[in-house]
Structure formats: structure tokens, C-alpha cells
């Protein structure tokens, strides 16, 4: 039996690295990759803990929907990045800072 605790640690790792990528990388596409990592970490948790309540499949069902949403979000996200890239001619998020405080 795979220890639930180990899966939990794994998902925590995925989450942390996903967050790290999200906070650190200077490329919009890479940010999307980090976002996918975070979503997958959540999925892993859902599926793993479903084992503890084996009579129902709520966890897995939710994981399906998470995937659906992740896909939608990835699609829209890439479209956005492309649009932004076209306007600002850069994919570096730091340089898309027109919404900062004007002072």
C-alpha cells in the first residue's frame, strides 16, 4: 500500500515547485506551466484521498472537473499570453506593468 502520507508530501512538493516557478520565472508561458503544476498537485491530492473513502467516488469526479477547468484555463491563458505578446512585444511579465501606480 502506498502511504497516504507520502502522496501528500509529493503533492506538497508539486505545489511548492509550482509556486516557485510561478513567482520566479520571467516568461509568461513558463508561468502557465507552473500553474499547471499547482493544479496537478491538487488533483493528486483529490485522487489520493479518495482511497480513504472507497464507497464513493467524489474525489475522482472532482478531479475530472478540475482537469476540465485546467484545460479551459490553459487555453484562455495561452490566448491571453499571445494577445499580450502581440501588444507589448514581450513575454516577460515584469514588463507588462502598465497597471502599476502612476507615481
Amino acid at each position: 500500500m502506498i502511504a497516504t502520507h507520502h502522496i501528500f508530501v509529493l503533492s506538497a512538493l508539486l505545489l511548492s515547485v509550482g509556486l516557485f516557478v510561478l513567482l520566479t520565472k520571467r516568461n509568461a508561458i513558463v508561468l502557465l506551466m507552473g500553474l499547471e503544476l499547482i493544479l496537478n498537485a491538487a488533483n493528486l491530492n483529490l485522487i489520493a484521498f479518495n482511497r480513504l473513502y472507497a464507497d464513493a467516488l467524489h474525489g475522482e469526479t472532482m478531479a475530472v472537473f478540475v482537469m476540465v477547468i485546467a484545460v479551459c484555463e490553459a487555453a484562455v491563458g495561452v490566448a491571453l499570453v499571445l494577445r499580450v505578446y502581440r501588444h507589448y512585444a514581450t513575454a516577460v511579465p515584469d514588463q507588462i506593468n502598465q497597471l502599476k501606480d502612476p507615481s
Binding site: 499547471e36 488533483n43 485522487i47 475522482e60 478531479a63 482537469m67 484545460v71 490553459a74 495561452v78
Partner: peptide, 22 residues
């Protein structure tokens, strides 16, 4: 973890869809 459907969905959707999108 005995979630076969999800494994497959993961491969098809994520690896085949999202990644390609990326």
C-alpha cells in the same frame, strides 16, 4: 491508485492537449 480513467484522461488531456497548447 486505481484511478484508471483519470490516468487516461490525464494523458490525453494534459499531456496531449495542454502541453501541446503550451
Amino acid at each position: 491508485l486505481s484511478a484508471e480513467l483519470l490516468a487516461v484522461i490525464q494523458l490525453m488531456v494534459y499531456a496531449g492537449g495542454v502541453l501541446v497548447l503550451i
